[in-house]
Amino acid sequence: MTDVARRALMGAALSTLAAPAFAQAGWPEKPWRVLVGGAPGGASDIFMRILEPSLRESLAHGFWLDNRPGAGGMLAAEICAQAPADGYNFLVNHIASNGIGPHLHRRPNFEPNRDLTGVARIAAMPNCMIVLPSRGFRRVADLVAFAKANPGRATFGSAGVGTSSHLSGVLFGQRMGIEVTHVPYRGTAPNMQAVLAGEILFAIDNAPASAQQVRAGLLTALAVSSAQRWSQFPEVPTMQESGVPDFDVASWYGLAAPAATPRPVVEKLGGAVLRALADPATVARLREFGADPWPLGPADYQEFMLGEERKWGPVVRAAGVTAN
C-alpha cells in the first residue's frame, strides 16, 4: 500500500470515528421527538409547552410531541427505550412510568430504569388529603382517631387501581397502623365527587384538581402529600408535619432518553431544561398550572428515579395490585 493510500485510509477511519462527536457537538440539527404517555392536553403536554420557548432559545431547534397513551405511560416508555439512541428521541416520564409502573407493569424485556436514562426532572404536584367539612376533621390526627375508633369505616377513594392516589392511601394506612378500605373510581374527578357526596371518608388525590372546591369551602384540605408545603396552599401542613412519618409523595415529571443516548446530548438537554426552570416566567407558568418546579440534572434525576422504584415496591406488594 502506498503512503498516499495509507494516509487516505487512516483519514477515512478517523473521520468515521469523529462523526458522532461532530454530530453531538452540533446537536440538535433538527427537531427532536418527545414521546408522551397521555392524551393531548394533559400535564405532560402542558409542561413541555411551558418549557418550549426557553428550550428553543437554548437549542436552536424545537421538539414535536408524539402522544402514545396507554398502560399508565408504560407504552410510551417502552417505545422510547426501543427507539434509536441518536439524540432525537425522548420521553416525558413520571411517577407512574418510572416509580410505580415497574412494579405494576412487568415486561420480560423492559425495565424502565435500566433501559431509560434520566435527562432532567421538571416539576411536581402533590396530592392532597381531602374530606367533607361536615365530618368535623380539622387535622390528620382527627381522621386517624376516627379510623381507630371505627374499624372498617375509614374508606378512601382513588383515581383507579395502582394510581398514586390509591397507593398514597395504602401508604397512609401503613404509616399510621390503621385499617383503610380502598374504593377505586375512574379518574380524579369522580373520586373527588365521591368525597363531596359522602360516599367515602377521604381521598389523597391530585391537589390542583380539588383546589377550587377547597377554596370555596366545599372540601377541607387536611394535608398535602409532599415533604414541602404546596405553593398554592402554603397554610396547609404536609403529611409529615401532621405526624405521618416518612410520607413524601408527589406526582413528578421529567425527561428521559434511551439508555445509550450519547452523554453529551443528555447533558446538553439537561442543562437547557435546568436553565428554563430558573426563568421566573417559566416558574410562574408552572405555578399557574398548579405545579412547582423541581429541577434535577441527569445524574441526580437517575438516582432519584431508582429511589422511587425502591420506595414503591413494598407499597405495591402490600396493596396486592398488578396490571399484568
Rank of each mutant, 00 (worst) to 15 (best):
A278K: 01
V273T: 15
L277P: 06
V283P: 00
T261E: 13
K268V: 08
L274R: 11
A260H: 13
E267Q: 13
W252Q: 05
K268D: 13
K268S: 15
V265I: 15
A260G: 06
E267R: 07
L286S: 02
W252D: 05
A281L: 09
A272T: 01
A276I: 01
A281G: 07
S251Q: 05
P262R: 08
V266F: 02
E267G: 10
W252Y: 15
L277N: 09
G271R: 05
A278N: 06
R275Q: 07
A257P: 13
R285H: 04
L277H: 06
L277V: 07
R275A: 06
A284H: 00
R285V: 02
L277Q: 02
D279Q: 03
G254D: 15
P264T: 12
A272Q: 06
R275P: 04
Y253P: 02
E288V: 04
R263N: 00
T261P: 13
R287V: 09
V273L: 09
W252N: 14
R287D: 10
A281R: 07
D279S: 01
L286T: 06
A276V: 01
P264A: 13
P264I: 11
A260N: 11
E288W: 03
V283E: 00
L277W: 08
S251M: 10
T282S: 08
R287K: 15
A276F: 07
L274P: 09
S251A: 10
V273P: 13
Y253R: 02
Y253I: 03
A284N: 02
V265T: 15
W252V: 08
L255S: 14
L255D: 14
E288Y: 02
L269M: 09
A284P: 02
A256C: 12
G254H: 09
L255P: 15
K268F: 13
A259N: 07
E267L: 13
A272H: 01
L274H: 11
V266K: 02
R275M: 06
A276G: 04
E267Y: 05
V273W: 14
R263K: 07
V265W: 14
V283G: 00
A281W: 01
V273A: 10
A256Q: 11
A260T: 08
A257Y: 12
G270T: 04
A256F: 12
A259I: 15
A256D: 15
L274K: 09
L274I: 10
T282Y: 06
L286C: 09
A284Y: 00
A257I: 10
L269C: 05
W252S: 06
R275Y: 03
R275I: 00
G270K: 08
E267A: 14
P258I: 03
S251E: 04
L286E: 05
A284V: 03
P280N: 12
A284I: 01
A281T: 04
Y253W: 12
A284D: 01
G270W: 09
T261Y: 03
P258M: 13
A256L: 07
V266M: 01
V265E: 08
D279A: 04
T282H: 07
E267I: 03
P258Y: 14
P280C: 05
R275E: 02
L286F: 14
R263P: 08
W252L: 06
T282W: 11
K268A: 15
